[in-house]
Design a protein around this nucleic acid. Structure first.
Lengths: 195, 195
DNA sequence: CTTGCAGTTCAAGCGCGCTTGAACTACACC
DNA sequence: GGTGTAGTTCAAGCGCGCTTGAACTGCAAG
C-alpha cells in the first residue's frame, strides 16, 4: 500500500490548528442547519487549497466511508465542492469552490421561501374560514391580519439579510477566493447596504 | 367536574381556523430554533386576546400538564407572555405580550453572538498556532485570514437583519399591538417604541 | 473470468432533545 | 391538622435525523 502513515489510526490525525478551523466551520454551518460534516469537509478542502481524495478526507476528519460519499455528493449538488476524475489513478478528487455564501444563501432562501409561502397560505386560509363564521369578533380578525403583516416584515428582513450577505461576500470582492479588488485595499469589504 | 365539554377528548379541540394559525406560528417559531409549543402557546394567547388559564391552554393545544408549566415559564422569562394571579379563584392566567420580535431578536442575537465569539476565538487561536509552525505555507495562512473576514461579514449581516426586523416590527408602527399609525383605534395598550 | 479496490446505498443503530406523567410542593378551605 | 386542587420538577420514554458498516455496483488489471 502507498500510505505509510506514521500516526496511530485512532488519534486525531489533524494538527490542532487545522482541527480548530474545521470544527469552527462545522459549528457555523450546523447553526445554519446544514450538517456539521458538510462544513468540516468544505473547510478542510478550502484550507488545504488543493484536491483531496475521499480516503484523505475520511482519515483526516475521521469519517466513515459512507459519510464521505454522502457528504461530498451533497456538497457537490450545491456547487460548493467540485469533483474531478484526475486521470492518473482513476480516483476521485475533491476541491472547494470559493463562492460558499452564494450557495448557502441560495439554499437558505429556498428554505425560507418554502416556509413563508406555506405560512402565508395557512394564515390566509385561516382568515377566510374565520370570516365565514359569525362568532369571530372583529378584533380577533384584526390580530390575524397583523400576524400576516408580521410575516411579511420578517420575510423582507430575511431577504435583506441574504442580499447583504451575498453581495458583501461574493460581490465586487470575492472574500474567499484569492481575488483582491485592485492594487489598493487589502480587505475592503464592498459596502453595499447603506446605513 | 366542572368541564362539561361536548367534543371528545381526542379530537382537536380548536376550530380549524384557529388551529391553522397556531400551527403556522409554531412552524415559524420552530424554524427560529424555539420550541414549537412555545409558538403555539403564544399564538393562541395572542389570537384570543385575553387571559387564558393553564388548563385552557392544556386542553386547547393538547399539551400535558408539565408541558404547559414548562413552556409558559420559558415564555415568561423571555417576556413574551405575562402571568397574573387574578384574585378571584387563585388561578394563574396568561396573556400574550405584543413585542414578540423584540424578544425573539434579543434571543437570536444572544445566540448568534455566543456563536460568533467562539468561532472568532477559535480561528484566531488557529492562526496563532499556525504561525508558530514553519510548515504552514503563506497561502494557507491567507485563506485562514479570509475565513475570519467571512465570519465578520456574516456577523454584520445578521446584526443588520435583526436591526431591520426589530425596527420594522417594533418601531414607529407596532404591528402586533393595536396601535396603528394614524387612526388610533380600539385597544390602546399604548406602547411607544422609540427607535 | 476473477480479483481487488473505489465508491454508493440503505437498513439498523445511536444520540440528543423534547414530552410525558407521576411524585412532589404550595396553598386554600374545611 | 386533613383534604383537594393548581402548579412544578425531573427521570424515563419516545421520535427523529444523522452515522455507521456491510452488501452491492462498477471498473480496471491480471
Amino acid at each position: 500500500m502507498k500510505k505509510p502513515r506514521a500516526a496511530a489510526e485512532s488519534a486525531a490525525p489533524l494538527p490542532e490548528w487545522e482541527a480548530l478551523v474545521v470544527e469552527a466551520v462545522g459549528t457555523v454551518i450546523e447553526f445554519w442547519r446544514f450538517k456539521r460534516n458538510q462544513g468540516r469537509v468544505w473547510a478542510l478542502l478550502y484550507l488545504r487549497g488543493r484536491e483531496l481524495t475521499a480516503a484523505e478526507l475520511q482519515e483526516a476528519l475521521e469519517l466513515s466511508k459512507g459519510a464521505v460519499s454522502m457528504v461530498t455528493r451533497e456538497l457537490e449538488q450545491w456547487g460548493v465542492v467540485s469533483r474531478s476524475h484526475a486521470g492518473s489513478d482513476g480516483v476521485w478528487r475533491f476541491r472547494a469552490e470559493t463562492d460558499l455564501m452564494k450557495m448557502v444563501g441560495r439554499v437558505i432562501e429556498a428554505r425560507e421561501s418554502k416556509l413563508v409561502l406555506g405560512v402565508k397560505a395557512d394564515l390566509e386560509r385561516a382568515e377566510r374560514l374565520a370570516r365565514q363564521r359569525d362568532d369571530v369578533p372583529p378584533d380577533v380578525l384584526a390580530r390575524l391580519q397583523r400576524m400576516k403583516t408580521l410575516a411579511a416584515v420578517i420575510d423582507r428582513a430575511v431577504r435583506g439579510f441574504l442580499h447583504t450577505a451575498r453581495l458583501d461576500v461574493g460581490g465586487a470582492v470575492s472574500v474567499l477566493s484569492g481575488v483582491l479588488p485592485a492594487r489598493r485595499a487589502r480587505r475592503t469589504s464592498a459596502r453595499v447596504n447603506p446605513g
